[in-house]
Design a binder for these strands. Structure first.
Lengths: 217, 217
DNA sequence: TTGACGCCCGACCGGTCGGTCGCTTAAAAG
DNA sequence: CTTTTAAGCGACCGACCGGTCGGGCGTCAA
């Protein structure tokens, strides 16, 4: 069956498994240069395979891209869903959700960029991604829908000000996702890695403080 | 000299002037699909020229791209610089600056995406953009530097809380730029055009309110 | 031993990429 | 009128694109 992996006793440990390795490499490249900016030759070379071998694992370039996006989304709602489901008031649950969102974005430096690029680049595939593309958008929408409900509940209960929910969603998404997607530019501002544990902790604090009191003293 | 433009009496009015038209078209396309996703054939076709004619106005594709970016930056600091220079306390000046930034992003729907893409895609040109690329980054940095100074002043004077300035900058940039770059996804959230006068006004209000009081009631 | 299968490969396909070349046209400059 | 020059064009270049094809090789079941 598989060449590299002793598929018998040890299940999935130890052997890289071409599929996952390809996804890892492709994720890094797509995040850095976008869908159109990455050639399959480059992916194959980085994996250590011939280009044609990629097609044994993925039907086409768009399917590879969509699967990368799917993995990214999976990593996020794997964390976000329990955070949304756990108990507490709306404010508490919102802050916890934002915390795990920040954690998810910080864990893989590629995540934020891929998310943003995914938003941008559905213009790039006019309509050719078929039903799978819808699924990716659907999943993304369902993720933010949970947070949206949290906002609504908080406002109804009087815990939050009567802000415009969509606009606040946009602000929240922008303030979290942009930060981790800002790359060298953001690191120039911060003066260090965006992804160090220290900076991630500080980011959560600042975000929480802004939502609690705003900027003015 | 020029074919289409009567360059004698009427200066720059009336005639499209190929250069500007090319920049307009290229700006729209680069915003939608990114540097690598746009071919010069497509640009030329949309302008109504042959591909080879583009090279009479721009040395290469990267130069065209950089000039598009330069124009975008120009439109922003054309508005932002006077807003920063005008009088008033730090809080007032910060709000005014964010207002004009929102106005600038709302005026051309392409602006926010190009800015974000510009941030992402300097990874895409390894080092080949030469000194002009530095200039673009420099200008962007100088723009945000003005806002940074405003934050610092506000904190020193006690008008603002003692937030981390870089982190607050990231939040501010993210909350404004992301919104106008979010495309169809954002419009799905908002339930209408991101760029209508009504939505732009509301966006400013919400942003101001968050900075003034935060989210909690 | 033999056949089937998973995985991988190099060669190759039509098409597009950014960019160059030589040419024509027409207006401005003399 | 002649010369210069900006602006345009189609043909063409080598390189690379995503994708296909036929075959080699090692493993496992029969």
């Amino acid at each position: 069956m598989s060449r590299g992996a002793g598929a018998g006793v040890r299940e999935s440990l130890e052997a890289p498994g071409s599929r996952e390795k390809i996804l890892d490499v492709a994720e890094a490249l797509f995040a850095r240069r976008g869908f159109a900016g990455v050639g399959l030759r480059e992916v194959a070379l980085a994996v250590g395979l011939g280009k044609s071998s990629l097609f044994h694992h993925f039907r086409s370039k768009v399917q590879l891209y969509l699967e990368v996006l799917g993995r990214v989304l999976g990593r996020i709602d794997e964390r976000l869903r329990p955070a949304l489901a756990a108990g507490g008031g709306p404010a508490e649950r919102l802050m916890r959700s934002l915390d795990v969102l920040v954690d998810a974005l910080a864990e893989h430096p590629t995540t934020a960029r891929l998310l943003l690029r995914g938003l941008f680049e559905d213009d790039a595939f006019p309509a050719d991604l078929g039903p799978e593309g819808d699924t990716v958008e659907r999943r993304l929408a369902s993720l933010i829908c949970g947070i949206e409900a949290l906002l609504r509940e908080g406002i109804e209960r009087g815990a939050f000000r009567r802000v415009s929910i969509p606009h606040m969603m946009q602000t929240l998404i922008g303030a979290t996702v942009y930060h981790f997607a800002s790359g060298e530019f953001g690191e120039g501002l911060i003066g260090g890695s965006l992804f160090s544990a220290e900076e991630v902790r500080r980011r959560k604090e600042e975000l929480r403080a802004v939502l609690d009191h705003g900027l003015t003293a």
